[in-house]
Design a protein around this nucleic acid. Structure first.
Lengths: 191, 191
DNA sequence: GTCTATAGTAGGATAGAC
DNA sequence: GTCTATCCTACTATAGAC
């Protein structure tokens, strides 16, 4: 892995652990095993490096979600697979956490990938729900957009509750709870 | 308002806006219109001041929730009233946001009120749901704890989505979505 | 490309005058 | 109680040698 790649990876880890404000260039360099010169040679500064890190993390999150949502199975099964996918719950969502970082939200460049990723996720989930609604899998009255927002919020909020309590249990409960509610809107999918 | 109170209020605002790591004593003093001497006279330092601020915010959140949840109406109505209560959505949850602050979570004293508040909220909501289940308002099969977790997560996650998109819409959608799902588990409450 | 040296600003706390 | 002065460390970036 090149020095530039190591810098981006270290930045991704630290942004996840400590956020943008809580991450110093010095900490990044220490973790990457690089000197100041390397960083300022490959990137213009902390913001530029964070931008590369956030973009990569956003792309990964999107690809991981797409893998579940466009996989095999009914709409219900794909939604369930996505929500129930194994996650590092106590570490939280590497994109969602940036939402709490005032310096990220105040910078249009840093903010854009965060906004796009979460907006895309809601929209993509709504598509799958709509699919299931069209095929008679879900009740016709189901509001795909509102339900999609509720599902993504259950995940994001589940992370918050889990971190607060220091246990994965609340996350699992939130996912179980929202899926149980959704099941009431499910008609028998047939085969 | 005393100087000590102004310091606590300024700290509450800044913790909400910028988090613990992103808030410096200097910024607190500027906002409170006080000098360094005042702060270190009334408090031992940043951590002590933050502790007072977090405790007060936690108490307020709890009182506000209790007002809705122990108010008049059916369980369904009280839950709806709590979820639909007017909120400063784009500012986020002043307690939930601390969950993303590594320095808060690493400090047992600062962390305790965050953990207690969110744990209490889930439990209190579960009680109301159980009440409604007992009175036949909700389906007997409803898992009160899981549903409570899903509802609180919808709020906390709704904040995240709203901040990401820069609009209150995703928050409202998440609340609408989860309440619509819950409605399917509702039997006619009668009178 | 990478290193060390340097610099200016801010963070967090202490000391002592008033 | 509050103020100013002071201290040490960290943050973020630049300069210039290798």
């Amino acid at each position: 892995m090149s020095t530039a790649d190591r810098l981006v990876e270290s930045t991704r880890e630290l942004l996840w652990e400590r956020g943008y404000t809580g991450t110093s260039p010095k900490a990044i360099l220490r973790r990457a095993g690089a000197g100041q010169g390397s960083m300022y040679h490959h990137f213009t500064g902390k913001q530029d490096l964070a931008l590369a890190a956030i973009r990569r993390t956003a792309a990964e999150l999107r690809a991981a979600a797409e893998a579940q949502l466009s996989g095999p199975g009914t709409a219900q099964e794909r939604v369930t697979a996505y929500l129930r996918r194994e996650r590092p719950v106590l570490r939280g969502c590497p994109i969602g956490r940036l939402t709490q970082d005032p310096d990220v939200m105040a910078d249009p460049e840093l903010r854009a990938p965060v906004e796009e990723t979460l907006d895309w996720l809601r929209e993509r989930l709504a598509e799958v729900l709509d699919e299931g609604r069209g095929s008679g899998e879900f009740a016709a009255a189901l509001d795909a957009r509102a339900t999609a927002a509720a599902l993504v919020a259950a995940l994001q909020g589940g992370y918050v509750l889990a971190r607060a309590s220091g246990s994965e249990a609340p996350f699992d409960q939130a996912v179980t709870g929202v899926l149980a509610l959704l099941a009431a809107h499910t008609t028998d999918p047939g085969t």
